[in-house]
Simulated scan of single mutants.
Amino acid sequence: MKITVIGGTGLIGSQLVSKLREAGRTVVPASLSTGVDLLTGAGLDEVLEGAETVVNVTNSPTFDAAAPDFFRASMGHLLTAGERTGVQHQVILSIVGVDRVPQLDYYRAKTLQEDLLRNGPTAYSIVRATQFFEFMDAVLSWTSDEQTVRLPATRIQPIATADVVAALAGVATAPPLNGTVDVAGPDVFRLDELGRLTLAARQDRRTVVTDDEAGMFAAVDGDALIAGPVARLAATSYEKWLTAGPR
């Protein structure tokens, strides 16, 4: 089985390429750096030729109102090229609760991407993951200064990217779901609580202030980002991940 990983040089894609190769799969990583441009379709036919499965883990370059245009164009080119070259299974990485937060531009864009895939010509699978452990530093930086970090009390259920990669690899090498699977970490936290835990582990003396208007996740209501009862829960805890060393 040949598998093409679109976005194969990024945080998730590079790990997925390595994991699939370790399992003996023929894998082709594709990205702008390898000459593949999803916005124009350039290079797609070459990397999809002979591929049975395509895993798309690319991301929009922005999280704002321009994101829908990126996913509309990229999915259009990928689905068209996949049908032309005989791809049998299209897989994308999405977000748990993505269709429950319409107030966020990026989440609306990812919902559009899912809809385009569902209505496309090829059998498909959607892997929805919760927020990555590895993104916590970025979240802390959005609303911080030298003394404080302001975070909302939004409930999240974060997951290690290694566990996301394992789920993607399993789905990519299995028959199409023609549906969605959710993957999440084992524990639920308030985001402000998670910030305090992170700073303490890193001996960062800044204070976390609970502010329900701070940052992107302040727009999230209730348990929209929490995985449901049928989600696949990963084994890696945030505390264990934090103590494993620098990232």
Rank of each mutant, 00 (worst) to 15 (best):
E146Y: 14
S125P: 08
V139Y: 07
P61W: 09
L117D: 06
L78W: 13
R108S: 05
S125A: 04
I126Q: 08
T111M: 06
V54D: 10
L116D: 06
T122C: 04
T85I: 11
A67C: 09
V57W: 03
A138Q: 04
W142D: 00
L93T: 11
A129E: 06
T62W: 01
A123V: 12
F135T: 10
Q147Y: 04
E52L: 15
E114Y: 12
Y106F: 01
M75H: 12
T111E: 04
F135M: 06
T85E: 05
E52I: 14
S94P: 00
V96Q: 04
V101L: 00
T80C: 03
E146L: 15
H89Y: 10
T58R: 15
A73K: 13
T122Q: 10
E134M: 08
F71P: 01
A67P: 02
E146K: 15
A73T: 07
K110D: 12
T111Q: 05
V139I: 00
E134T: 11
N119V: 12
N56Y: 07
N56P: 15
T53I: 04
E52A: 08
L93N: 07
T148P: 05
G97R: 09
L104P: 00
V96I: 05
I126T: 09
T111S: 13
M136P: 14
T62Q: 04
W142V: 05
S125T: 09
Y124A: 08
G76S: 10
M75T: 11
V149S: 00
Q103N: 01
T122S: 11
F135G: 01
L79C: 10
Y106A: 14
D115M: 01
S144M: 02
D145N: 13
E146D: 15
V91Y: 02
D64E: 14
I126W: 04
V96K: 04
Y107N: 08
S144L: 06
D145V: 13
G82F: 10
V96F: 05
V98R: 07
R84L: 00
D64W: 04
R108C: 03
D137V: 14
D69Q: 01
H89G: 02
Y124R: 13
R84G: 04
Y107V: 04
Q147M: 00
G120C: 05
T85Y: 02
P68A: 00
A129R: 13
A109S: 01
A66M: 12
T130L: 12
L93P: 02
E146M: 14
G82V: 12
S144D: 06
R128W: 02
T53W: 09
A67R: 00
N119L: 09
T85N: 01
V127Q: 12
T111I: 05
D64F: 05
G82L: 14
A123K: 05
G82P: 07
T111W: 02
A65W: 03
L112N: 00
A138W: 08
D99R: 08
G82H: 14
I92K: 15
M75E: 03
R128H: 09
S141G: 08
L93F: 12
L79T: 05
P102Y: 01
T130S: 13
S74N: 01
I95F: 11
K110N: 03
I126V: 10
M136V: 09
T58I: 09
